[in-house]
Write a protein that binds this DNA or RNA. Sequence first.
DNA 1: AAATATTTTTAGTCTTATCTAAAAATATTT
DNA 2: AAATATTTTTAGATAAGACTAAAAATATTT
Lengths: 217, 217
Amino acid sequence: MTTLSEENYLKAIYHLGKQGATPVSTNAIAEKVESKASSVTDMVKKLADKNLANYVKYQGVSLTNKGRLAATLVIRKHRLWEVFLVNKLNFSWDEVHEVAEQLEHVKSLKLVNELDAFLEYPTHDPHGDPIPDKDGNYSPIKSVNIFDVDKGKEGVLSFVKDSTDTFLKYLNKNKLALGDTIKVLDYEPFDNSLTIETKTRKMIISKEVAQNLYLSL
Amino acid sequence: MTTLSEENYLKAIYHLGKQGATPVSTNAIAEKVESKASSVTDMVKKLADKNLANYVKYQGVSLTNKGRLAATLVIRKHRLWEVFLVNKLNFSWDEVHEVAEQLEHVKSLKLVNELDAFLEYPTHDPHGDPIPDKDGNYSPIKSVNIFDVDKGKEGVLSFVKDSTDTFLKYLNKNKLALGDTIKVLDYEPFDNSLTIETKTRKMIISKEVAQNLYLSL
DNA sequence: AAATATTTTTAGTCTTATCTAAAAATATTT
DNA sequence: AAATATTTTTAGATAAGACTAAAAATATTT
Ligand SMILES: [Mn+2]
Ligand SMILES: [Mn+2]
Ligand SMILES: [Mn+2]
Ligand SMILES: [Mn+2]
C-alpha cells in the first residue's frame, strides 16, 4: 500500500524525468512537492525500500517498473476525476486540479474502472493531457507547439502545457478553449509574439502564452 | 480545517449520542473508531480546543453546534457518494461503504453541492439512511421496524439498520432489496421469527434479521 | 589543482495520531 | 461504607512525515 505522501512523490519523479526513467535530483523533487531537500532524501529511501524507486546516494532517483505503474495509476485517477468534474459536475477547467489532487488518492480499483466506463473511456483530460489505461499506457501526444505551425496554417487547440489556474483564467478571459480552431497569421521576431485568428476574432499572444499552446493539425 | 481523523471522531460522537446531543463515553468512541480509550481522550481534547466538542473530564463528550454541523457535512458527503456509486457506477449496496469512507473526506463545497444536484437531490442513501442538506437538516425516518407491523399488513422496505456487508449479502442472497413490498404473515413467539411474503415468495426471517428491517406503510 | 559554491545527506526536533502501562476517578458489589 | 471492579486519564513511547542546521559530497570557478 502506498501512502498519500508516497504517491505524491511518485508523481513528481514520474513527471520530472521522462516517465521516471531518467534520474531526477533531490532539489527538483523538493520543489515539485513543495517540501525541503532533506525530506525528499528520507522519502526516497522509503520508496527504494518498497521497490518503487532506484536510489543511489548523490546520484538522483528514478522509478522502478513497479513505481512507474503506481505513478501512472495515480495520474490516471487524477485525470479521470478531472474529466468527471468538468463533464458531469459543471466545474470549469481552472477549478478541477485541487479537487483532483484529493480524489486521486482514493483507493478502489473498481471505482477507477467504473468511473472510466461511466465517462465513456475518455482519452484526454480537460487540459489535453492523455489518460493512461489500466496498464499505465497511453498514446503519445501528437499535437505540436503553436510556434511550430507554419504561418497561414491552422489547427485545433488540443493541449495546454501549463494548467495553473492563472494561465487557464487568462485563456477563459480571452475566449480560448480546448477544441477551438486557431490559425497562425503572423510571427513577430522582436518579442516572439504571434498573431492568431480564432472563429470569433484576431488577437496577439505573447511568447509566454504561445509556449503553452499545442495544436493538432 | 478538520483533519481526516477529527472527522471520523466527530461522526462517531454524532452517531453514538442522538446527533451528538447526549454525552458519549470514551470507551464507546474508542470502539467505534477502532482505537484505544487513551487515544480518544487526546483527540477529544483537541476537538474541545477547536470548539467542536463539549468535554468534561470523566463525564463524556458531546458535540457543539459547530461540531454537529461538521459531522453532518461528512455524513452528507458519505451518503451522497454512496448514491453516486450505486446509481452511476454499478456498485451494489454492500460494496459502497469502504469507498465512501474515503470519499467523505474530500474537501470542496462545490463538489458536494454539484454532486447533490447531479444525483438530483436524493433524500436517502442506498441503505435508506437520510441525506442531510447543506445545513445538516433532514426529515426524520418515518419507517417502522417490521416487528411493529401488524399481521396481514404490508409495507415497503425502506431502511436497513445494519449496513455491514455481511447483512447486506444475506439480503442479496435472499432477494430482499430496498423498495420491495413485504407483507407480514405470521409471528412465532418461540424464537421471535417472522414469516413474510414478498412479490416472489414466502420466507421465514429470524429475530436478528427482523430487527434490522424497516418498512414504510 | 585549489578554492569556492552548490547540492545532498545526516543529525536532531517537531507535530499528529497512535499505542501500552500505570495512576486516578468513578461505579458496582458485597 | 468498604472493598472491588471498571472506566478514564496521564505519562511516556513510537512511527510517519515534515523541518532546520551542520556535515559531507559533488560541481564549478579561478
Ligand atoms: Mn490536474
Ligand atoms: Mn489535468
Ligand atoms: Mn456507509
Ligand atoms: Mn449508507
